[in-house]
Write a protein that binds this DNA or RNA. Sequence first.
DNA 1: CTCGAATTTGGAAGTTACTATCAAAATATA
DNA 2: TATATTTTGATAGTAACTTCCAAATTCGAG
Lengths: 207, 207
Amino acid sequence: MSTSSLDRLPLRERKKLKTRRAIQEHALRLFAAHGYDATTVEQIAEAAEISPSTFFRYFPTKEDVVVTDEYDPLMEAMYRERAADEDPVEGLREMFQTALGEMIVGPDRDRLLARVKLIQSVPALRARAWDIQQQGSHGILIELLSERLGRDRNDFQVQLFVGALIGMISTISYYWADGDGAEDLGELFRRGFDLLQAGFPLAAQEG
Amino acid sequence: MSTSSLDRLPLRERKKLKTRRAIQEHALRLFAAHGYDATTVEQIAEAAEISPSTFFRYFPTKEDVVVTDEYDPLMEAMYRERAADEDPVEGLREMFQTALGEMIVGPDRDRLLARVKLIQSVPALRARAWDIQQQGSHGILIELLSERLGRDRNDFQVQLFVGALIGMISTISYYWADGDGAEDLGELFRRGFDLLQAGFPLAAQEG
DNA sequence: CTCGAATTTGGAAGTTACTATCAAAATATA
DNA sequence: TATATTTTGATAGTAACTTCCAAATTCGAG
């Protein structure tokens, strides 16, 4: 962590990142303390020592403060680094494992857990989170997969797969947050991919 | 169509349904003509000859006018009518086929197509549509399936399956609307279920 | 170090979705 | 016809977002 790439940025950029983080931290703190709806953008701006108009320059909507993250480009880079002759879906599966291991630990884990719980509990956030994921991860996954598979981006099977995968990821996130993060997220993803790859053998059990 | 069940309702209820439909029709018409954002609730209210406050008594948000439909209870009823010893997932598959055949034809088809296209093009609607589906169809499917399977409602596999299914349905709807409804919706569902049940055999093709 | 260009910030005013309240109107019931 | 219940409309208010302009800050060149 010593000399991160951030330190080499020009002053202006560093300040912007700092402001952005300050807004996000104060916002999440206030949401946790008083609730999402009860916290106004004005209050967040005051806590972060900026003006409301500056708030909206950093985040287009109040929802984005909670819903936005920076995982997508990282995941894309990780996937592109993988061997070209590997099975594409298998590669995706292992990319997720690596990503989860690297990104979702320590303070990030608690942050993510808090965010998912908040998202889950506020309709406006649930809705926006899905759309952000759809615009971000969904598109990237389509591109990466169709590329590796040598298929068109509009290939129906690829779209179906990614659609199902995103739906599964949503489910996994909420299941994980429901259990207060007690279960291992990597293990939940593993079970998800197993079923997606091999099909769902849902059979009745003894009631 | 002659004497529908609606005619037997008391005057008050009939009027409510009529008002609700009037609001929805005028809203969709205005959205198509001038765009979603450019159309205000006030304008919709004026066109439907009601007050803005009445609008919000019928629809909690402007988004709901577009996003709400009445398919869920029908699908639930159709599923419950099916034989108890049938394979639950197979039953779901065939319920969807029947439902699509019965509900999504004629004027309903064009209406649905217009709605999906509108939803697809407006971020706020995309987001809200997902959340509505999640609150509605998702919960119902979890209940129906877990019941038939004799499993707990919190069963992880059931949740994964329904999550993936809902993701797939979203994908299918948008794919269908993208192609202006040229493809057969039932056929698209069939292919989706095939892959979900048997697993995704995504293999590279000759580029 | 200083000056001028570019960018970031703050402030003010406006739009619109949505809420709360309460009196008037329409409908049901007796 | 008279009374109770429900639905409606008008009014006033909140807060998220947008737009626009002037002030402050940072950057690059001489």
